[in-house]
Simulated scan of single mutants.
Amino acid sequence: MSEQEGRLVVAAAIVDDLARPSRLLAARRSDPPELAGGWEFPGGKVEHGEQPLDALHRELREELGVAVEVGAEITGPLEGRWALGPGLSMRLWLAIVVDGVPAPLEDHDELRWLGPGGWSGVPWLPADVAVVEALISRCPSARV
């Protein structure tokens, strides 16, 4: 799917260490109502003419008030992307916070650091469950 065929969402799996992540930041949606209460990876839609990584940095500043260092992309089964729903797909990268303290500034009402063995311990939005499972299998330090 090209970026013109559907809306691209970019997101970050914010972890404590790019080489050996053991903690993962989850964000609980407050809006829109149909997603409220579900947990997800912070990020958002790529604007027309915007590069995906530029969008990721912008979204994380807006939503969490942080700057990040981006690590490896966690590729999904759909041409490297993850399906989010009709007309929406997501690209996701590992990232660490390099400036600021994450806070739920926009679209979220709570953030939670999930420790080893607990990455699946919140009710993730359905589209993110497969991503969490892929992250756990990729990151041995995330397991107990």
Results as ranks from 00 to 15, higher is better:
M1K: 07
G6I: 02
G6D: 00
G6E: 07
L8F: 10
A13M: 00
A13D: 09
D16R: 04
A19W: 02
R20D: 09
R23K: 14
R23E: 14
L24D: 01
L25P: 10
A27I: 00
A27Q: 01
A27W: 00
R28K: 15
R29M: 06
L35N: 05
G37N: 08
E40R: 09
F41G: 07
F41H: 01
F41V: 13
F41I: 11
G43L: 12
G43T: 07
G44K: 08
G44S: 09
K45G: 07
K45A: 13
V46F: 05
V46A: 07
V46D: 04
E47M: 12
H48G: 09
H48W: 12
G49E: 03
G49N: 10
G49L: 06
E50A: 06
Q51R: 14
P52D: 11
P52N: 14
P52G: 10
L53Q: 14
D54P: 03
A55P: 12
R58G: 04
E62C: 04
L64W: 06
G65M: 08
V66S: 03
V68R: 01
G71A: 03
A72H: 13
E73H: 09
I74Q: 11
I74T: 14
G80C: 03
R81T: 07
R81W: 02
W82H: 08
A83R: 14
P86M: 06
P86R: 08
L88T: 05
S89D: 15
S89Q: 15
S89G: 10
M90S: 15
W93F: 07
L94I: 01
A95T: 05
A95M: 08
I96F: 05
I96N: 01
V97E: 09
V97T: 10
D99H: 13
P102C: 11
A103Q: 13
A103N: 13
L105N: 09
L105A: 12
E106N: 12
D107N: 14
D107P: 03
H108F: 15
D109R: 05
E110F: 02
E110K: 14
E110G: 00
R112E: 12
R112F: 05
W113V: 11
L114N: 06
P116M: 01
G117T: 04
G117H: 01
G118H: 11
W119Y: 13
W119S: 09
W119T: 08
W119N: 05
W124S: 04
L125C: 04
P126Q: 12
A127H: 12
D128A: 15
A130C: 02
V132P: 10
E133P: 01
A134P: 08
A134E: 14
L135H: 02
S137G: 13
C139T: 14
R143I: 10
V144N: 15
V144I: 08
V144E: 14
